[in-house]
Amino acid sequence: MADAAPPPFPASAGILFGLGLGGFFDGIVLHQLLQWHHMLSTWYPIDTIDNLKLNTTWDGIFHSLTYLFIVGGLFISWRAAQRRRWAWSSRRFIGLLLIGWGLFNLVEGTIDHQLLAVHRVNETVPEPQRIYWDIGFLVWGAAMVITGWWITRSEGASDAAIVSGPR
């Protein structure tokens, strides 16, 4: 009697990893390295020490939340690996990471950039150009979701899954 095929890597874990990595990229690259914006920089421009402190605090809160996405992904992965065998697939994992990262961009870009307008993607360019950066961020997110979905759906013979875990 043949064993039933093991379940694939948990989608929720991969998506949480992608959400966390998307948040870390945004916070580290756009907030800290490029300093294009901070969490509340449209509402509280970085023109005083108090506003910088407020924005830095909210950047830290933002990073803490993205860290929790990673912890959640690790917890789900660990629990699933302890309970059953599963099929490890690089294509599925990468696809799920892209879906999560893209969802991060779409949600953050829609809520923070457009609805609440707490900041824009690139506040170092003239005001009329900022919308193009915001649109690019959303297009980038949508492209990641679509590509990730396509990768997870096209999974198959090109990526032999490795089965691991208790039998």
Rank of each mutant, 00 (worst) to 15 (best):
T66A: 07
A87I: 00
F93N: 00
S89H: 01
R120W: 03
I76V: 13
I151G: 05
G141K: 00
A81S: 09
N105Q: 09
G148R: 07
W58Q: 11
A161Y: 01
I46Y: 04
T124W: 01
S154R: 15
D3T: 07
L103G: 12
P128R: 08
A117D: 08
D159C: 01
L97I: 15
L52F: 14
N51M: 03
R83I: 00
D47H: 12
T147Y: 04
A161W: 01
A4R: 12
S89W: 00
M39A: 14
A5H: 11
G95D: 02
F69G: 04
V107Y: 13
T66I: 10
V118A: 09
S77L: 09
T152M: 10
A142K: 02
I28D: 06
S90Q: 07
H63N: 11
I70T: 06
W86Q: 00
F93S: 00
G100I: 11
G148E: 04
M1Y: 07
T42P: 02
Q114I: 15
A157C: 01
A4E: 14
G102Q: 09
R85M: 00
F69D: 07
I61W: 05
W43L: 12
G18A: 08
Q32S: 14
L116F: 14
D3N: 12
S12I: 14
T147Q: 04
P45A: 11
G136A: 02
V71C: 06
G14M: 12
D47K: 14
A11T: 15
S77M: 09
I49N: 11
E108D: 15
L96S: 04
L40E: 09
R79C: 03
R120Y: 03
D26M: 08
L138W: 08
M1Q: 09
